[in-house]
Design a protein around this nucleic acid. Structure first.
Lengths: 212, 212
DNA sequence: AAATAATGAATGAATAGTTATTCAGTAACT
DNA sequence: AGTTACTGAATAACTATTCATTCATTATTT
């Protein structure tokens, strides 16, 4: 909307820009040192800024971390929504797009995954974190179930419990993230995608050609 | 200052017993407060012991946490090995036993799950943690693959990539743990088990009756 | 157009609070 | 008496937060 932009000076960057800069520094630090060893000094230094800067923009550390979690959650959602838009409209293609989105570089990058797991590890004791973590999958799950229903209709499949299958798919998707994060034998995003597609092909054999 | 002394049996516990007591207090604290907010004061107090006790038995905090991780890893392995022993010898029953073991109360209890996720969150930045997390699944994965091979043989299944299927199953197993830990709608161990069994029934339809 | 005031962004040294670790001392057991 | 197990106050290091101050930009006045 606004035409006039005056960055460069570093000091006069717009608030939103600075906040994002700090959030990204936080992500880096969490991936590098873990959530427990991430200090405000580390984050502000990584951002090339001064000691007090985080309190200025986020009031306190807790809030920076909270906003960081919200940031990757929002990024995650945007990613799969845009993948759905770009894909063909038939349910099998939509399903493929939705699940492959989880392994695109923007969201399944090791730094981001480290952040997700860090917050999952704290979620039990922090209701605020827990809520965001739950919200990550609400819309995703709903759409996934709709697609499964359409696919069952199209392929005449039987013996499928939609809700359970959706839970299973999402569980596998998350578990594959863990594998990317931790695996000893260089498990990559492309490997995760392949495993997931094989699963879908097994559950929906009539649509095998779309998945593989 | 010197108050009434507690019974001798408390103080003179064998080293191994005291260590386990402290590890269990650590698990409790991690589940309650998260790894980041777990302090030595909290853990020793939860164990009903004094401030310096952890340094006495584990040298330092880092080591206590490391031993805690090794403890739940070992417990995890014992649990599935003993489940295999108790089960029938045919591959489908063995597979069922192996996977259901992941949702038995001893290992899939929310406190233990919180600990796993806490360490997974730190694994990227701590090679020592990472190694233990990897080791959790090495033997498990090997046996799982053997069972899959036997089952394919028995049921005459085709189009199954053994290694990929094993990765997928393990991923789903871990992802269901996350669901137990975090889910908004009270997802329980029994739900996880059901979802997993439905998956197996879909992949190995000839053995459906064993899984469901 | 120049001078001056006001504003908002950022700094970084100082503070207050927390926490891991040490160790001199105490108690129990052999 | 000698040894082992434990205690808990003291210490030293670390870290989140504050705030007086600096500095560039924008607004207002001359």
């Amino acid at each position: 909307m606004t035409a006039l932009q005056k960055p460069q000076t570093t000091r006069r960057a717009a608030k939103a820009v600075r906040r994002r800069q700090l959030i990204e520094a936080a992500i880096k630090s969490i991936a590098k040192r873990g959530l427990g060893d991430t200090t405000l000094a580390h984050v502000s230094k990584a951002a090339g800024l001064s000691q007090g800067i985080i309190n200025l923009h986020f009031t306190n550390k807790e809030n920076l971390l909270y906003e960081t979690l919200k940031y990757i959650r929002s990024e995650y959602e945007q990613n799969w929504r845009s993948a759905l838009e770009k894909s063909d409209a038939d349910p099998a293609s939509q399903l493929t797009a939705l699940l492959k989105a989880d392994y695109q570089s923007a969201v399944a990058d090791v730094k981001k995954l480290a952040v997700w797991f860090a917050f999952w590890g704290e979620a039990k004791s922090r209701p605020t974190y827990k809520k965001i973590c739950q919200e990550r999958v609400t819309d995703y799950s709903e759409i996934l179930q709709e697609l499964i229903v359409e696919l069952i209709d199209e392929g005449g499949y039987s013996d499928i419990n939609v809700a359970d299958l959706a839970e299973g798919i999402i569980a596998m998707a998350d578990g594959l993230w863990l594998n990317i994060l931790i695996s000893a034998n260089g498990f990559k995003r492309s490997d995760a995608e392949r495993v997931m597609m094989q699963y879908l092909a097994q559950v929906f054999p009539e649509h095998r050609h779309v998945f593989l």
